[in-house]
Amino acid sequence: MTVTLQDSSASAVIEARRTYNEKLSRKTDQTRATWFPLALLALLAALPLLQFVGNYNYVLHLVLFTASYVAMASSWNILGGFAGYVSLGHAVFFGVGGYFSGMLLARYGISTLITAPLAGLVAAAIGYGVGLVTLKVRGPSFIISSIALLMIARILFDNWHFIGGANGLTLPTNDLTVQWAKLPYYYAMLAIAAFTVWSAYKIKHSKFGLGLRALSKDEIKAESAGIDTRFYKVVAFALSAFFVGMAGAVWGEYLTYLRPNIFLLILVSANMVLMCILGGKGTIAGPVIGAILIVALNELFVATMGASEINILGTGLVMAIGLMFFPLGLVGTLARSGKLPRILNWD
């Protein structure tokens, strides 16, 4: 057998290597569209004007409900999306926020709109403490520990008579007429949602956010690059509890009652996860889009089929399909294939 190594063969390889290197270095050429979320926010802020021409309470309720989940999902995203720690126990912070502010309202008559940031801080403090303990493990173990956290919180709240136990507490309603009663909560929740999305954006693009994303890829390498991973993770946990706690505070007064089986529900946690996965974990627009989609879908299920069991079935089904076929979520999938419309690129 004779051996021939043609010149073309070697030069073809060199050529191929060059193309390959260029492909790697090519930057994704996409400019973000920050005007879109701002315009959306302005539109929603003006929405209550509709109340002058009729009763659009249901529309306001839907926006408020969506905004609460935008805040919660974006907040969850800080830990689950940026740092890669999937928590199924975040409903705990919703409950903590709701109960903390709710109790202040019930005892001292201070509106949750004022105490919401405080509720957020309490949730963050608890998140920090829990994170110190549970963030030692990762992957499935962390997920399981987060479920256990929710179960423990549920038992404690169900049996704590001071806060009403399993029957919960009724909160005083405000003095506004039916037409305007929702407005304070509407604006408060909208503000919380906007603040959360803005903060998530700031966090993602900070050095801290970079560290989180690094440790989500490879914790050991991140550590050897000088990132204090433990501190980063725990702070991320606290931050992602903060905004959920704020949303919980306002939600309690809006509902006018507190009950463990409304706040400490695994479905609430599942929704946060689901919204982020469906929209795109780790992106800024993802949780927002996910929240809108899931709330719309929920309304559809409830409107067409009524029962909450169907709702659970549907949520599970959507989650499974999303996970199997769009693991990167809507924003992530579109971005990877380079088809993300500019108005959805908020990163």
Partner: peptide, 16 residues
């Protein structure tokens, strides 16, 4: 884990 979580919800919803 997430898939089985979704499955758990589906089973619960179906049985419910």
């Amino acid at each position: 884990v997430l898939l089985t979580f979704a499955l758990a919800m589906m089973v619960e919803g179906l049985l419910g």
